[in-house]
């Protein structure tokens, strides 16, 4: 099966549409339906990319939280356990759709594509370069943090044990060290490739809006409009 290729601009629009929809609290069944639909799309897209493991993981998480919220938790529930449960469901239901979307976009967009899309939209270089670095950096930070965590555990400095300030210091400072070093290398590499040169950059990636892009954009635009209509006008 040929992987579905979407234009980065379409992906950006999807992110904005999803974060708009999840931001507003859904009340009526129609609103919930729209919300679940916009969550299902990125999951399907992940599956289409061949990332079945992530797709299944997200589906299970989201489904469980949704079910808990629907059938168990209500305005009357009190106590510590249900507070934590509310917390968990809150995170998943409120932030998961946007997170899945962001995950999908980061996983499937090459930096080159992203940059050329930003250039086509006439976003200032400063913002697009910084944003590209942020995007590229999240996985790196996660990786580095895992190494540091391992090293600290070996030394017996772990969460819950002893002083909190030490705990933060011993994790954040090494993390910053490694991020700075990676940053130096990254900027050397970027400058070598002519980033920041005073000319218009050309790219090997040709972006084109295809039928799939139009379909996806249309779907999200429609769901945003439906949502706004159901929420405010009705």
């Amino acid at each position: 099966m040929k992987a579905l290729k979407l234009d980065p601009r379409t992906k950006l629009f999807m992110i904005f549409a999803v974060s708009f929809i999840v931001m507003v609290n859904a009340v009526t069944p129609l609103e919930w339906a729209v919300r679940i639909a916009v969550t299902a799309i990125p999951i399907l897209l992940l599956a289409a990319e061949g990332r079945y493991a992530s797709a299944i993981r997200f589906t299970v998480c989201y489904g469980a939280a949704l079910a808990l919220m629907r059938f168990w938790l209500s305005a009357e529930s009190t106590g510590v356990f249900s507070a934590i449960l509310v917390g968990y469901c809150g995170i998943v239901v409120q932030f998961m759709p946007a997170m899945i979307m962001a995950w999908y976009v980061i996983r499937t967009t090459k930096i080159g594509e992203f940059m050329s899309a930003m250039q086509k939209m006439h976003i200032p270089d400063g913002i697009s370069i910084s944003l590209a670095v942020v995007m590229r950096f999240f996985p790196t930070i996660k990786e580095e943090y895992a190494y540091i965590n391992d090293a600290m555990r070996m030394r017996g400095i772990s969460f819950g044990g002893g002083r909190y300030t030490k705990m933060i210091e011993y994790r954040l400072v090494p993390l910053m060290f490694s991020c700075l070093n990676i940053g130096e290398e990254l900027s050397a590499a970027a400058v070598t490739r002519g980033l920041g040169a005073p000319v218009k950059r050309t790219g090997t990636v040709q972006l084109r809006i295809g039928a799939a892009d139009i379909a996806v954009t249309g779907f999200f635009a429609a769901s945003v409009m439906l949502f706004v209509f159901a929420k405010y006008i009705r």
């Binding site: 270089d125 400063g126 370069i129 910084s130 944003l131 590209a132 670095v133 942020v134 590229r136 950096f137 999240f138 930070i141 993390l175 910053m176 991020c179 700075l180 990676i182 940053g183 990254l186 900027s187 970027a190 920041g196």
Partner: peptide, 11 residues
């Protein structure tokens, strides 16, 4: 500079 901004924003 832009790269520095990106790194620290991520942090």
């Amino acid at each position: 500079d832009f790269i520095t901004i990106g790194i620290f924003t991520a942090l």
